[in-house]
Each structure stands twice: as structure tokens, then as C-alpha cells.
Design a protein around this nucleic acid. Structure first.
Length: 620
DNA sequence: TATTCTCCTG
DNA sequence: CAGGAGAATA
């Protein structure tokens, strides 16, 4: 394909529609429309159709290697019709030009002034189309190196061109009408949302403190200028918003729990499987946002697993109340009678409710409301609550205070995870009501009951299987790294006997060691380069002892508490690795992108036996 | 095709 | 350290 369009052509076709610097091409009236009053351009000049047509022309010109653009496009840009050049040279677009005239006259908006929202929207649409129109030409400025990309882009351009053609065949005025209609609808829906939000605020505040209505409403919904402006109560406003959200959420949650409990209590006599019974308790529904896609059911969990599992119930319920749950959920039983589920929550249409959040499962507010709430939660003052990241419920998020459990697992996890996640928050920070209510049922539940529930519930087991890796395991893995850099999965299974292995766990452990290696090799490279920079001439001058800075760095990473005696062999391996890096870098092998692979190959053979005591589950 | 590894990013 | 992308490997 010949891309060597004359420079002049490119300029006239690409820049003239994008920039102001071609006054000789763009008529003043058109420029005013484009740059000063996009709305007017929209309603009067059908700029969109013109630009679309120009796009088509440009792209066709590229495709067919036609060089007639400079004239016709310039004319088109000017806003004046050049039908002869259009229709005579490209009969496939014949529908375009006449419709321009039609649309110009039958513009649905006519002369009516439009809201600013609409103007802005329209401006954006036009901008997008301008970019579309300009891109294929600007591409022509590139040099020959990008021919491949260009070819691909050209194909895309052709497709896009076809798309545009299809659109062009629609009567323009109809298109405009539709567009206007859509915009209007959007505007209306936004106004509706605003009103609803406003009402919500008023309603809530009136319950709390009638005196606040005036000030708060004015501040929160200032756009509508309900009463006036208030700028002096920002802090109080935030506080109130916080409390309000908490109350609203808590109310909704409590309500749903009540309803679910009622339903459950009335249906426990029904003929349902143990799993079903288990899943029917609210805390299960809430907390079972398990990673269902992997992991097989596990009925033989160790006792401590079951204990930590119970802590998960509360933890995950906390973490998930408001976040978006995109993960497949296991909150519904395997073979639930549809009526049973839907009778509890009519909003849940699917018996296997895959994408329902635990929260939504029981309480699904109208879409707009939830959106508003979501937005407020995300960006509002209560970010701690709202911005809970989308992490699997099995991942660490603890609320030890919310459940009075004395199990070691809980305590341990709480301790570690609270330091692990900088933004960990205690329930107390969630407000008096908060989501603690969600955890309440746990407190009332006997530990034995919980345990048996957990053992009978495959989905919980999934959760816990994944949960099997604790910070203790991480610490142990780090120490094992002193012996083995590339442990096989068999080794891992052997040395983590207390972990119920599955694909997920294995991958996780492998990932850990991968991370360990990453740090290890980064340090090696760093110190090797440092040695070279310091002018070390001989590899033999590089040693790794316990006094070495390198060792200290590694020890700090894998043995932070420094309560483990690092085997000498590790020092040797570290030294060998350092030498490898030194040699490779000295030989400027690092210019090769895969120069480290040779080193990895050497190091992976240097794994040594891991002491037996690591095999005991109680190690550490 | 699934798994593993490295690299990169947050 | 987790997660994702991409390449290598089985």
C-alpha cells in the first residue's frame, strides 16, 4: 500500500479540521461553530455528518490510493457542500450529502437553548468524531518504520470506515433525533438521581436533627440551590454524611439479616441438605464470597483450620458489605429450590446468583440508589469503609474485636495482618453501628457448631483451604529459602504438612518463592554492579560473609527477626550467585535481554537439603 | 493447553 | 508481596 500521499494533502486533510491555523480553509462561520459554540454547530451545521463524511473520504483515499482529497476535503471542511466531488468520486456515500441538507433544516433542537450538560456532552461527541476524522491522516506523517502498525491500523481504519458508512446510510435527521433523545434521557436520569439523593439526605437529616436540613441540604445539593449556600459546616457535614451512611448501611443490613433469619427459621424444617442449611445463615451468605472457581471441597480440615475459618466469617463479612463483588460467589446452595431463594430476596433472579454481592443478596436497593451510595462510599468521607479493595474474602482482613473469639489462630492472624495491611482498621473506627451487626450472629454461635458447619460446607472449606497459608507459613517459607531457592511442589507439600494443598495453595507457595528469588537476584545484581563500580578486579575478591552488607540485606528480608541461624551453605550459594552476576556483568553479557537465565540455571542446582525439623507442622 | 517462571507495577 | 502480562516449558 502506498502511503506516500502528498504532504499538502495530508495537511489539508488532517490539520484543517483540527486546528485553527488554516483560516483560508475554514470559513469563519464554521470555525465559530466548531470552537466557540459546538452546540450551534450541532444543531445548525451538522458538523458531525460533515466530519464523518470527511473521515470516509480520507480513509477511502488511503485505501484506494486516490489523491483527490486536497480539493474535496478542503471544500468539505469549509462547511460548503461539494457534492459534485463527493458523489462523482464516491458513489457509495451518496446518501450522505443530501441528508446534510435535510438534517440542517430539521434539526430537532431547532433554536431552543440547551442545558449546559447537553452542550458539554455534545462537545465531547464532536471532539471524538474530530479525532476520528483526523487520525488516519496524521498517521501519514509517520516514517516507514511503522509500516506494520500502519497496515494494521489501516485495516482498522477501513473497518471503522465501513462502520461509519453504515451509520451514514441512516437518515441524518433521524440520527440526530436519536442522539438528542438519548442525551435528553441521560440528562433526565441524572436529574432524577440528583433529586433522589437530595431527598435521601433530607430524609435522613430530618430524622437526626431538623435544624440540619437547611444547612446540609444546601451544602450537599448545592447544584440545585435548594435553600442557599453554606460553607461553614464542612466538617460537620462530613461527619454527618459519615454517620448517615453508616446508619443507612447498618439499617439495610440489619433489615436483611432479620428477613433472612425469618426466612431461614421458617424453612429449616424443609428438606434441605446440610450445605443448604449452612448456607442459609446470613453470616454464611455474607462471608462466602469464596474463590469458588478453584479448589475442591475439603471435608477433612484440621481443627485449627476450622477455628480460623470461623474468624473468617466475621472478617469477610466486614470486608464485603459494600464492596463490589465481581468474583463468583458461593453464597447460594448447590441445588436451591428457586422459590426458596427468590422468596427471601425477590431481587435475586438466579438461583446460583453468581454475581451477587453478599450485601446485594439480601438487600438490593434500586439501581440508582446503590450507585449513589457506592459513589458516596467510594469518594465520600468514609473512605475506610467504602474503599475496601476487592480482595478475596479469604485474604486478610480482620476484626478481632467484633467477635469474642479466643482462638489462637484468630489472635495470630489479627496480629500479623494488622501490621501487614497499613490501612487495616478496627471495627470501632467503623462507627457505633457500622457493620458489626453483620458479625453479631457469630458471637451467638457455638464454636463447635461453627466448626461442624464449616466442615460440612464445601464452600467454606474452599475458603479455608485457600486460607491455609498463614503468615507463619510465609515466615517458614522464607527460612526454607535459605536451603532451597527452587523448591519442587513435592518439597513444598512435604514441608507444609499442615496445609491442605490444592492448586491455589501450590501456586501461592510457588509465587512466594518466586518473590523470594526476585529479591535475591535483585540484591545479587545490585551488589555485583556495586563491586564492579568500586573497581573490584578479581572475582575472588568478592566474598559473602555474615558481616557482608549483602548478607545483612538478605537476612533482613528472609529472617527479619534474626532468630534463625542461617546455614553456611547459603552464604556459599550467595557468593556463587554474586560471582555469577559479577562475571556476567563484567563480560557485558547483561546487554543480552536474557542474560540472567544462565545464572538462574546455575543457581537452581545449588539447592540443598532442608532440615527435617521444617517438616513438622508446629515448626515456628 | 496448563503450568511455571520472570518481569513489571503498585 | 500480590497481581498481571508474556514467554517458556511440559
Amino acid at each position: 500500500m502506498n502511503l506516500s500521499l502528498p504532504d499538502q494533502t495530508m495537511h489539508s486533510s488532517s490539520e484543517s479540521c483540527l486546528e485553527d491555523d488554516k483560516p483560508e480553509v475554514i470559513l469563519p462561520c464554521f470555525r465559530r461553530n466548531m470552537h466557540e459554540d459546538p452546540l450551534a454547530a450541532y444543531s445548525n451545521g451538522s458538523i458531525i455528518s460533515q466530519l464523518l463524511r470527511k473521515t470516509i473520504h480520507n480513509k477511502r483515499a488511503i485505501d484506494d490510493n486516490h489523491f483527490y482529497l486536497s480539493n474535496s476535503v478542503a471544500a468539505a471542511d469549509s462547511g460548503q457542500e461539494d457534492e459534485s466531488s463527493v458523489s462523482s468520486k464516491d458513489s457509495t456515500i451518496e446518501a450522505v450529502s443530501p441528508s446534510d441538507h435535510v438534517s440542517t433544516g430539521v434539526s430537532p433542537e431547532g433554536d431552543h437553548p440547551l442545558p449546559d450538560h447537553l452542550k458539554a456532552k455534545r462537545a465531547r461527541v464532536e471532539n471524538i468524531i474530530r479525532v476520528m476524522a483526523g487520525s488516519p491522516n496524521s498517521r501519514q506523517h509517520c516514517d516507514g518504520e511503522r509500516c506494520d502498525t500502519d497496515a494494521r491500523e489501516m485495516r482498522e481504519a477501513r473497518e471503522s470506515c465501513r462502520e461509519n458508512k453504515r451509520k451514514q446510510r441512516l437518515p441524518q435527521h433521524q440520527e440526530h433525533k436519536e442522539e438528542c433523545h438519548k442525551l435528553k434521557e441521560q440528562l433526565h436520569s441524572m436529574q432524577r438521581l440528583l433529586r433522589q439523593l437530595q431527598e435521601k439526605f433530607l430524609q435522613v437529616y430530618s430524622q437526626e436533627d431538623p435544624e440540619f436540613i437547611v444547612r446540609e441540604a444546601a451544602g450537599a445539593v448545592s447544584e440545585h440551590d435548594i435553600i442557599g449556600n453554606s460553607t461553614d459546616a464542612c466538617y460537620i457535614k462530613s461527619q454527618n454524611l459519615q454517620e448517615t451512611l453508616k446508619q443507612e448501611l447498618s439499617k439495610a443490613v440489619n433489615d436483611c439479616i432479620d428477613r433472612v433469619f425469618k426466612k431461614v427459621s421458617s424453612s429449616t424444617d424443609m428438606d434441605i441438605s446440610p450445605q443448604q442449611r449452612v448456607c442459609s445463615t446470613p453470616e454464611m451468605q455474607i462471608s462466602l464470597g469464596a474463590d469458588r472457581k478453584s479448589l475442591a471441597p475439603d471435608h477433612s480440615q484440621a481443627e485449627e483450620m476450622s477455628k480460623s475459618r470461623s474468624s473468617e466469617l466475621c472478617e469477610s463479612s466486614e470486608a464485603q458489605t459494600s464492596q463490589d463483588q465481581t468474583e463468583a460467589l458461593s453464597l447460594v446452595v448447590r441445588k436451591p429450590p428457586v422459590t426458596q431463594v427468590s422468596s427471601v430476596t425477590p431481587t435475586v433472579k438466579r438461583p446460583y446468583a453468581v454475581h451477587q454481592t453478599p450485601f446485594q443478596f439480601s438487600y438490593t436497593p434500586p439501581l440508582h440508589e446503590s450507585h449513589i451510595l457506592e459513589h458516596l462510599l467510594k469518594y465520600g468521607p468514609h473512605s475506610n469503609f467504602g474503599a475496601l479493595p476487592c480482595m478475596p474474602p479469604s485474604m486478610d482482613r480482620t476484626s478481632p474485636d467484633s467477635v469474642d473469639l479466643s482462638w489462637d489462630a484468630v489472635a495470630m492472624r489479627s496480629k500479623v495482618t494488622s501490621s501487614h495491611f497499613g490501612h487495616h482498621h478496627r471495627p470501632s473506627s467503623m462507627g457505633a453501628v457500622g457493620v458489626d451487626g453483620l458479625c453479631l450472629p457469630h458471637v451467638k454461635m457455638e464454636s463447635g457448631e461453627l466448626q461442624s458447619l464449616a466442615e460440612r460446607n464445601p464452600y467454606m472449606s474452599l475458603n479455608i483451604s485457600f486460607e491455609g497459608l498463614t503468615p507463619s507459613h510465609l515466615k517458614k517459607a522464607k527460612l526454607m529459602f535459605f536451603y532451597t531457592r527452587y523448591p519442587s511442589s513435592n518439597v513444598l507439600k512435604t514441608f507444609f504438612p499442615d496445609v491442605k494443598f490444592n492448586r491455589c495453595i501450590t501456586s501461592q507457595l510457588i509465587k512466594w518463592f518466586s518473590n523470594f528469588r526476585e529479591f535475591y537476584y535483585i540484591q545479587m545484581e545490585k551488589f555485583a554492579r556495586q563491586a564492579i563500580a568500586e573497581g573490584v578486579r578479581d572475582v575472588k575478591d568478592i566474598t559473602v560473609s555474615r558481616d557482608s552488607e549483602l548478607f545483612r540485606a538478605l537476612n533482613m528480608h528472609y529472617n527479619k527477626a534474626n532468630d534463625f541461624h542461617v546455614p553456611d551453605r547459603f552464604l556459599e550459594v550467595a557468593e556463587i550467585t554474586l560471582h555469577e552476576f559479577y562475571n556476567a556483568i563484567s563480560a557485558t553479557k547483561d546487554s543480552d535481554s536474557s542474560w540472567k537465565k544462565a545464572i538462574y540455571k546455575v543457581i537452581c542446582k545449588l539447592d540443598s537439603e532442608i532440615p527435617e525439623e521444617f517438616k513438622t507442622s508446629s515448626y515456628l
